[in-house]
Design a binder for these strands. Structure first.
Lengths: 200, 200
DNA sequence: GCGATGACATAAAACAGATATTGTCATTTC
DNA sequence: GAAATGACAATATCTGTTTTATGTCATCGC
């Protein structure tokens, strides 16, 4: 996978991420990346087959910032129904915070990510797997008896809450409290749909 | 509302819609609209305060093509749960068909519509009202006992199915059969969440 | 030999002058 | 006198040109 020196590869990646942060996606050139590292731009192509691949790698790293904290929740001890609720709320909060903190940077990274469908697909698959794990646990311990096929139901849950995490929709998000209440309502519907009783 | 002759106003609107269809949103100029009608462009401004307003009016008309058939279903005789399912499926089919028929035209009209937030808001409110009517009926006849506040629940249902009708998401829609199955699954979850029993 | 270079052809983006469009209004027409 | 015109300033868009970036490769140094 990483036949060329992984060290310089990382340095290139970090430099690219820094430039993306500073100047936005349109100004990210491999010439500048090389300049910043004091190397020839031709050499960047020894480590990444194309500018596209470099951008995809940067996006991948950025997306892992989103999934990492969620993995902790998914693997947690809480009862599956409340774990799912917590997980969905956390995903929404993370996305919302990223948008509000720096909309331009969010848009920049999102644009880069959306140019690499396979990176997006992997990210989504990752999220679906985390939900599926929660649903499977709920099916096993009887707290979510309505779960039929964890993977399919997980995808359904993720899709049904797209409004709160899909980049194109989070952008024009409106009031935070309203959005939170709306997510909570949808979560409740989904949990009851999955057979949960005594939903908070 | 229509102090100026409603006849010429309509002619302008139709001409604008025709040009939008033919040449796309970027090529829609009020100069061309006027030329097509054999009038001066200045006169268009007697009937529409700005190009933006003209575009909004065109978008409004276009969106009513979506809501009209749905209104029939919402006002139908079917039992509320299956009526809701039918309504959501119909909305998805309408949107999907519009995208597939002519993606460029869809994108064009969508761009025009998205430039007029108040037109969008009215459209969404219209859809929410239709769902709310179904939910209220289900609450009344006991087939959807889980309905708490019809308006809020209606909005939740619409948001949860955004994947299947929101222009930005319908666009990259993938396989039709897969999407249909996914919508059906989400619909089932929502119906059960609203208290429906014996969901098909 | 491996990592790196820099010159090169090709493709994309930035620029600036020319052209077209938006929106206003005093004037015209019927 | 309401509906329409056409000339107008300000703004946006197009077009052809120059500049810059991407990606390749023969060559270099260690």
């Amino acid at each position: 996978m990483d036949l060329p020196s992984p060290d310089t590869r990382t340095r290139i990646l970090d430099a690219a991420a820094a430039l993306l942060r500073r100047h936005g996606p349109d100004k990210l050139t491999v010439l500048d990346v090389a300049k910043r590292l004091g190397m020839s731009h031709g050499n960047v192509y020894r480590h990444f087959p194309s500018k596209q691949a470099l951008r995809a790698a940067v996006a991948e790293e950025w997306l892992s910032d989103v999934t990492a904290p969620l993995a902790l929740i998914a693997a947690g001890e809480a009862a599956p129904p409340s774990r799912l609720r917590e997980w969905l709320a956390a995903l929404a909060v993370i996305k919302r915070r990223k948008v509000l903190e720096d909309p331009e940077m969010f848009a920049g990274f999102h644009r880069v990510a959306s140019e690499s469908p396979e990176v997006i697909a992997a990210h989504v698959a990752h999220l679906v797997d985390q939900i599926a794990a929660i649903l499977a646990a709920g099916k096993a311990d009887g707290t979510l008896p309505g779960v039929a096929a964890p993977q399919d139901d997980a995808r359904a849950v993720l899709v049904a809450t797209a409004r709160f995490h899909h980049p194109d929709l989070v952008r024009d998000g409106g009031n935070a409290a309203t959005a939170e209440a709306e997510l909570s309502r949808i979560t409740t519907l989904l949990l009851r749909g999955l057979g949960a009783t005594a939903v908070a």
